[in-house]
Design a protein around this nucleic acid. Structure first.
Lengths: 191, 191
DNA sequence: GTCTATACAACGATAGAC
DNA sequence: GTCTATCGTTGTATAGAC
């Protein structure tokens, strides 16, 4: 019995993957268990066996999405480069601006904000991201309090960039916002 | 006939006001015509008389909300003060961070993004806001292209501040983001 | 563990009397 | 212009056989 994982991992895994995709594309509230069923290819009974309520499914899918997103973001911040360049690398990462942030969009989703457990997962994502960026900016030479403010601003610029790009239908809005922030950070560092 | 507006303005106006409130609190997708009915106090038939579909109601309510929000924002930018201070006044305006931006949140709302007319109204709001802020920053001495980038960044910081505050459940996240941005703009101006 | 069948409420919208 | 009654669909969830 060296392969301890049962075959059920498959059905469960497919359900979570399908839910992640649909939640990212249409939001949690706007996605029905029926749609997840259809996309995953499993039967109705299976879904409710693994996830008795939509809440359980949302928690699993959002948790997986947050884990993925956090790993990707922290990667840019922990590269082999000077601290300021690592911060700018996070800012400049390629993003699908018109799709919106898979995590950030959840804060406008009623089904998420009304669910304490899910909302906490989303909150932890941003808390950890800001913490990591603040450490990098402190390493770049800023006093701790200033580094935290700049980190909040930088993460906010990315989130707001998504909003601007989606609202205007123009991905350049995100690029302009990030460019503006990067220029300001460089200017301050070169003081 | 010097009073051209009929009494229907009342029922219609109450419907729009109720819709604005509900849309701001719960989103467009998550708000049903039934809820608008209940909140406004008018009858079922009246709603569908004035607004044959939910689309029509959304367009009217979102349009009204955008008009209000734009007027408020532009007010801070057109005060009697030096240009940089007007930009910082916009950034520092008091905001209900945990409630989210009544306009910005709409970009995560499926019912809005799928509706060309409504989405255009939301897009125009941000386009006009960025334009106005860019003009102020140019007046403060920045080259036009730089002013536009900084304006995108500043508007994005506010939108992202809402996201951070809602995600973490902490209004201070918005304040930190705005503080960080303001400090960067001041530093650049005092170069 | 997975399936089909079904329950019951709420959805957006319409009908037709007044 | 406004009302009550109702349509057909989809929502989340459950029942019970296999």
């Amino acid at each position: 019995m060296l392969a301890p994982v049962t075959q059920t991992t498959d059905a469960r895994g497919r359900l979570v993957a399908a839910a992640q995709e649909l939640f990212a594309a249409r939001g949690v509230s706007a996605t029905s268990p029926r749609q997840v069923l259809a996309a995953s290819g499993v039967g109705q009974g299976s879904l409710y066996h693994h996830f008795p309520t939509k809440h359980d499914l949302a928690l699993a899918a959002v948790g997986a999405t947050v884990d993925d997103a956090l790993a990707e973001s922290l990667q840019a911040l922990s590269a082999e480069a000077p601290a300021l360049e690592r911060a700018l690398a996070y800012l400049g990462r390629p993003r699908d601006a018109l799709a919106g942030c898979k995590v950030g969009r959840l804060t406008s989703d009623q089904a998420v904000m009304d669910d304490e457990a899910v909302r906490t997962v989303v909150g932890t994502y941003f808390a950890r991201l800001v913490d990591a960026l603040a450490r990098v900016l402190a390493e770049a030479g800023l006093p701790d309090a200033d580094a935290r403010d700049r980190a909040h601003a930088a993460v906010a610029v990315v989130q707001g960039g998504y909003v601007l790009a989606r609202a205007t239908g123009d991905p350049d809005a995100m690029r302009a916002a990030v460019r503006g922030m990067a220029a300001l950070l460089r200017a301050e560092a070169g003081r």
